[in-house]
């Protein structure tokens, strides 16, 4: 038997699943970002610490993300637009899911590429037309996957990765969001 290695430690994930079965508290994570206005519509958002497994945790290094708007929005384009960050989140989450599910199902991946397109009618955010929503009208993700698997198995990988995706869920289902002034 050839050994399938997609670089995902599935055993650790399955062990975690077993341990957390009866430890709902340890499973409660809080992800955090702090953001700072720079100038115009440019901001920087920093991420390093989070909470999980009952204690404070930290990424190996701090990550800083610039968000701005392109020049066609009369901005300086110091970074991608906030809504594009959603595409980053969706693509990376689904891709991670494909790799994990493939590992778990013993499927060797050679390449996984995807294109994510979010269609956005900006008349919503500009207040041109109250019937147009602010967010994406729809999002389309197209995967191109080369793996030791049939087309049907690959489709199943992609379907399962959506089923267990945090970002897919966050985008497709409503979430309670509270915004306060400290």
């Amino acid at each position: 038997m050839t050994i399938v290695d997609n670089g995902v430690n599935v055993k650790a994930l399955l062990d975690a699943r077993e341990v957390l079965k009866d430890a709902a508290e340890a499973a409660q994570f809080t992800w955090r970002a702090t953001s700072k206005w720079q100038k115009g519509v440019h901001s920087t958002t920093t991420i390093q610490n989070f909470f999980g497994l009952g204690q404070e945790q930290s990424h190996k290094a701090e990550a800083v993300f610039d968000a701005d708007h392109p020049e066609v929005f009369a901005a300086e384009d110091n970074g991608i637009t906030p809504i594009e960050y959603l595409l980053v989140g969706l693509a990376s989450c689904l891709t991670a899911g494909v790799a994990s599910v493939a590992q778990n199902r013993g499927i060797q991946l050679r390449s996984v590429e995807s294109t994510v397109e979010g269609n956005h009618d900006i008349r919503g955010i500009l207040g041109v037309d109250g019937d147009v929503r602010n967010g994406f009208n729809n999002i389309k993700v197209t995967f191109t996957i080369d793996a030791d698997a049939s087309q049907q198995e690959i489709e199943a990988l992609v379907a399962q990765s959506q089923k267990r995706s945090a970002v897919f869920d966050a985008l497709t289902n409503p979430t309670d969001v509270t915004v306060e002034v400290a």
Binding site: N138, A159, L171, N173
Partner: peptide
């Protein structure tokens, strides 16, 4: 899509309808 919440008198449905379709179609084929 799946009814995800009722908020301010509005039923909010999941946008993941295509995924539940393809999951069921794949399982049927299998």
């Amino acid at each position: 899509g799946r009814l995800a919440a009722v908020r301010d008198g509005r039923a909010l449905f999941s946008g993941g309808l295509r995924n539940v379709f393809s999951l069921a179609d794949l399982k049927l084929r299998r």
